[in-house]
Amino acid sequence: MTSARAPLTRDDLAPLARAALGRTPAAVHRLRGGSKKGVYRLVLDDGTTAIAYVWSPGEDYWGSPDADIRDSFSHASGIGLFLAAHHRLTELGVRVPRLLLADEDAVHLPAPAAVVEDIGGASLERLLREEPEAARVPLERLAGVLGVLRQCTAAGHGKALLVAEGGTALGGSCAQAVADRAVRDIADAAERDPRVRAAREALTERVRDLGGAVGPRGHTSLVHGELGPDHVLVTPDGDPALIDVEGLMYFDAEWEHVFLQLRFGPVYDVLRAPGLDPDRMALYRLATHLNLVAGPLRLLDGDFPERDAMRGIAEFNLRRALGLLRDAS
């Protein structure tokens, strides 16, 4: 299946660009990889560039599901989440692309949008793959950023916007919220893959056992929520800049570190933090693999264009989840 969605054009984005940059772009390019929002590079006639984010149903391959902000795992997309996360990270001194314009009321497009600085450097993912020596400094600095986030705490869990507004998340503790979502992910994936269907009862029991082993904790920490090396840009000075920050939330630090371990692989040791709870790590590791099966399989129900990549993600994580189940038996 191929996507019939047409990207926004230079003419579509011209009003937004003029409001943010004072000029009409000479060209626009939709950047690959986004599934929740459109990401466009605006190119001016003098070579100056900026990045436009567009939150519209036509750019959201998940179908723009209704999102209850009180659910820590609800759809992490929208200009409100972006602005709250951008503001909190900026307050903490964490590098993010500088905000040039926020169009919350959809004045310049038929959807909310923002324009931010184009960092212009490579992603940390590309450096790790192609220039590992050049990745060393930003990777070490990213460890420092993670330390800053971990020291920013709250009493309960929830999206950064919810906590900023004084709200309370649904779902009890972090571990309870993760276990409940993992059980839903198992049921979801079982509808789409016979191997999950066959292992559904055993996987569900394992999730419940791991959740029951997690002890109480009186605080949470700020986490990006999906911090892979593709979500870290490197500035010309070698600083890591975080992008795709809408999922920023207060949660167990172990939730972040399970994902970091998965995505950074052999260089994760540079980012490893002391004092992580092994019981939380065990639950969150299995739950993360299960979500990275269920999510991609749901996405493939629609017209997401990069289908082979999504199938690969689902297959890799299904093998990991079933491997963890075998190891526990």
Rank of each mutant, 00 (worst) to 15 (best):
M1D: 08
T2S: 14
T2I: 09
P7T: 06
P15D: 00
A17R: 02
G22W: 05
P25H: 02
A26L: 02
K37F: 09
G38K: 04
V39L: 15
V39H: 03
D45T: 03
D46A: 01
G47R: 04
T49G: 12
Y53T: 02
G58T: 05
W62V: 04
G63M: 10
P65A: 08
D68W: 00
L81M: 12
L81C: 02
H87P: 00
V94T: 09
V94C: 11
R95T: 12
P97C: 13
L99R: 11
L100G: 02
E104W: 00
A106S: 14
A114H: 04
D118V: 06
A122Y: 06
S123F: 09
L124N: 05
E130L: 10
E130D: 15
P132M: 01
L142P: 11
L146I: 10
A154E: 10
A155G: 06
A155C: 01
A155E: 14
G156C: 04
G158A: 06
K159C: 07
E165H: 10
G171Q: 10
V178K: 07
A182Y: 02
A182N: 01
V196A: 06
A202R: 14
T204E: 14
T204H: 01
E205C: 08
D209L: 15
L210Q: 05
G215V: 08
R217E: 13
L227D: 12
V234E: 11
T235W: 08
D237H: 00
D239R: 13
D244R: 07
Y250P: 00
E254G: 06
W255H: 08
Q261G: 11
F264L: 06
A273D: 08
G275N: 07
D279Q: 15
A282W: 05
L283E: 00
L290R: 04
G295V: 04
L297F: 09
D301E: 14
P305R: 04
A309H: 01
A309W: 00
R319H: 11
L324W: 05
A328M: 12
